[in-house]
């Protein structure tokens, strides 16, 4: 009869920011008081909002940013393996965006131009084992793993994220009205 005391099954969301600026996450927070509504029906897995480091099985993964280094590759693969639905959010995740402006430049040329050995002043590429190796280019997420949906914008507005997310959660085909669809 009563569902009291019975835990409602919540939608599990994972989010991550790769080669991006966290603008999409900031825009996600722009759904404002609707966060309370979201918290009623969803809970967060791996996300900068929870600080959970590794993702478990989840329903929806939102990926912000392009794939620019080996760590990003591991992260998108982990999310792809665990999420039922994977969404590329924002310009960088969809086509590389601003970080992809480096794609026409040689990685070695960039690194040797930017970094210097503090003692000698000679060009020196940082090589700490803690640093993930940069890739030759910044890749859109769909060139590394299969992407189910894309939510464009730089960033997509809070309203666009809310519309997209609620459509997904309610099992509808996500669709953006004209005013919510932007590439910038």
């Amino acid at each position: 009869m009563s569902t009291a005391g019975q835990e409602k099954v919540k939608v599990r969301l994972a989010t991550t920011s790769l080669a991006g600026c966290f603008g999409c996450h900031m825009s996600f927070l722009d759904i404002d008081e609707r966060l309370f509504e979201l918290a009623e029906i969803a809970e967060f897995d791996r996300s900068p909002l929870t600080d959970i480091k590794h993702c478990g099985p989840c329903d929806i993964a939102l990926i912000e940013g392009g794939v620019c280094n080996t760590d990003n590759v591991h992260v998108v693969r982990e999310l792809r393996a665990n999420a039922k639905i994977l969404v590329a959010v924002g310009a960088c995740a969809i086509n590389g965006g601003l970080p992809a402006l480096r794609n026409k430049l040689d990685v070695n040329a960039i690194l040797t131009q930017v970094y210097r050995d503090p003692k000698t002043g000679e060009p020196c590429v940082p090589n700490s084992p803690e640093l993930p190796l940069p890739l030759d280019m910044v890749y859109p997420v769909n060139e590394i793993v299969r992407v189910d949906y894309s939510l464009p914008g730089c960033p997509p507005s809070g309203d666009a994220i809310w519309k997209f997310l609620t459509d997904l959660i309610l099992g509808r085909m996500p669709r953006l009205d004209y005013s919510l669809l932007n590439y910038d």
Partner: peptide, 19 residues
Amino acid sequence: LQALGYEYEMLTPHFVELY
């Protein structure tokens, strides 16, 4: 070009970027 993307609800360029 962008407006045509909006008109036909292009959410992603889909193909591999040539850069």
